[in-house]
Amino acid sequence: MIKPLWARLQQGHRTVAFPKGEPVLPERFRGRPQVELSKCLADCTRCADACPTEAMRKADGALTIDLGRCLFCGACAEACPTEAIEFTRDYRLAGRSRDDLVVHDRAVKLAEALDQKARRLFGRSLKLRQVCAGGCNACEADTNVLTTVVFDLGRFGIQFVASPRHADGLFVTGPVPANMKLALEKTYAAVPDPKLVIATGACAISGGCYRDHPEVCNGVEGILPVDLYIPGCPPHPITILDGLLRLLDRLG
C-alpha cells in the first residue's frame, strides 16, 4: 500500500493552470492564421495553389482562410512570397457558425456562449457522447486527454458518457464515411431533446483532406445541426477545452 502512496507523491500535482492562467503551448504551435492584406500581391495565388484543402480563397483581391477546412500545415505561409500569412500562437479557434470560421484579416471572432435558457440547462453539467465517424484517432486522442489529470474536464461539470441516452449532445470527429452515416444519425436520434452537436476537427467540419471523396460525407454538415465548431487537425486539447468553456460561458 505504501508504494502507490509514494508513487502518488513522486508524480506530483499536474493539472494545468488554464483557464485561470495562460496555457503552456509549444513554441512552434500553429494556431489561428492571420493575413496582412497590405502585403498580399494582387495577382498572386500561390497560397491558394499550395493549400491541400482549398481553405485559402482569393476573390476580388481579398484573401480568406476557412478554418473549418484548414489543416494548419503551414503550406500557404511557406508559399507566400511576401510573408503576408502568419500562423499565430492563438489557440482560440472555436466558432458558433460556419461563417465565423472564415478569417478575413486580423479580426478575431470568438465563439459566443449559448443563450441563457440553454446555459441554465447545460452550464453546470454537460454530458457528451463522442462519436468517431472516420476520425484518424488524433482528434479522439486529444479529446480523451481532457479527461486526464492534466486537464481534469470533470471540474467544469463536463463529462463524456457511454450512452447517447445519458447525453446532452454529440461530440463528433471524422469526415463521416458513408459507412458511418446511419450509425451517426441513430446515435443523434437517441440523444434526448434539447441537444447540442459539436463538430471537432477539420474532418468533422468539412471533410478535411478527405473532402469530396465519394466514400465520405464531408463531415457532419447537412447531416446534423451544429452548435459549436472546433477547427484543427487535430485541435490542441486546449483549443477544444477553450471552445467548450466559451460555449458554456465559463471563461470569466
Binding site: P52, G134, P175, P177, N179, Y210
Partner: peptide
C-alpha cells in the same frame, strides 16, 4: 466503418493531399 478511400485517392499522385 472508417473507410475513407485512401488507396484509391492515392493513385495518380503524389499530389498536395497525399502526405496528409
Amino acid at each position: 466503418y472508417q473507410h475513407r478511400g485512401v488507396e484509391r485517392a492515392s493513385v495518380g499522385g503524389p499530389n498536395k493531399r497525399t502526405v496528409h
